[in-house]
Amino acid sequence: MNKKIWFRDLGLRDYKDVWEYQENLFQETVDLKIRNRREELTLETLNYLLFVQHPHVYTLGKSGDIDNLLLNEKQLAAKDAVYYKVNRGGDITYHGPGQIVGYPILDLENFFTDIHKYLRFLEEMVILTLADYGVTATRSDGETGVWLDVGTPFARKICAMGVRASRWVTMHGFALNVNANLGYFDNIIPCGIRGKTVASLNVELGVERVDEEKVKAKLLHYFARLFEAEIVAQNLEAEKLPL
């Protein structure tokens, strides 16, 4: 089993470009697994973890309800935002500057074959990271993601999650609000859940801005620990990786 994970920080990138990039990495891994099975080979599959920030974008999962987007095309344009229906699980969510988005493209057969455990590990990575900032975060029964003040009238989501998996290969992932403009969430019913709001780490800490590089480092640390993996950083320019 290959527990090495190639990490790439993509910076600020268009959502559609990164979606296509994910799809390419995902399909390469799936195709290799099919070839291994067909030809009785044991070629090693690769694992990736991408960090990125996107310009303002709303995405709707394959089981989502378009009525949870409260803007029409003209209103989207006025807010300098775009919309895509995508092939992940979950309903509607928002991505934008100040949010750390993580896309693990893993062959889970290198780790464990359990999607439920995979999602819980992603949640735990965020919960442990927030704990380092003195923020107590938890899970909410029946609602994937990471929440604050669950069971109170003030319950709010700080990290959304939605994944796709085929042949135990994953894509899409999580979005942690660090310095997010929460006003953009007013234009949707986040994750299709009414009556609950969203949170951002800087607001919870009462500061103007949280150092996002430090948050990324903590996420990577806990990701590696939970998955018992070796994180190998790749520089897009130095490696001449396409995107």
Rank of each mutant, 00 (worst) to 15 (best):
H54A: 04
P55S: 09
E73G: 09
A78L: 10
Q99T: 05
L71M: 14
A81K: 14
A81S: 13
H56D: 07
V57N: 01
D91K: 04
V86P: 02
L69Y: 08
T93D: 05
A77N: 12
Y58W: 12
V52P: 04
G89K: 06
P55T: 06
T59D: 13
G90L: 12
L76S: 10
N87V: 04
P104V: 06
L70C: 08
Y84L: 05
L108K: 08
H56S: 11
G98W: 07
G96Y: 05
Q99L: 00
N110R: 03
A81M: 14
D67P: 00
K79F: 11
D65I: 09
V86Q: 02
Y103Q: 04
G64V: 12
D67S: 15
P104L: 10
A78D: 14
G102P: 00
P104Q: 10
K85D: 07
I100W: 05
Y103C: 02
G90W: 07
Q53S: 10
T59M: 11
Y103D: 03
K62H: 15
Y103E: 03
K79Y: 12
V101Q: 07
S63H: 13
V86G: 08
K79Q: 13
D65G: 09
V82C: 13
D91Q: 08
F111A: 00
V52F: 00
H95N: 11
H56N: 12
H95D: 07
G98F: 07
E109N: 05
K74T: 12
K74W: 09
N72I: 02
V52I: 05
E73H: 14
G61Q: 04
P97Q: 08
Y94K: 09
A77H: 10
S63K: 13
K85E: 14
D67V: 15
V52S: 01
Y84W: 14
G64Q: 08
Y83D: 02
H54V: 12
L60R: 06
P55K: 08
R88Q: 03
G98S: 04
Q99K: 03
K62G: 01
Y84A: 09
Y84K: 01
G98P: 06
N72L: 05
K62C: 11
L76Y: 14
G102E: 00
F112C: 00
D107Q: 03
L69S: 12
L76I: 15
V82T: 15
I105T: 00
I100R: 13
G61W: 04
K85Y: 00
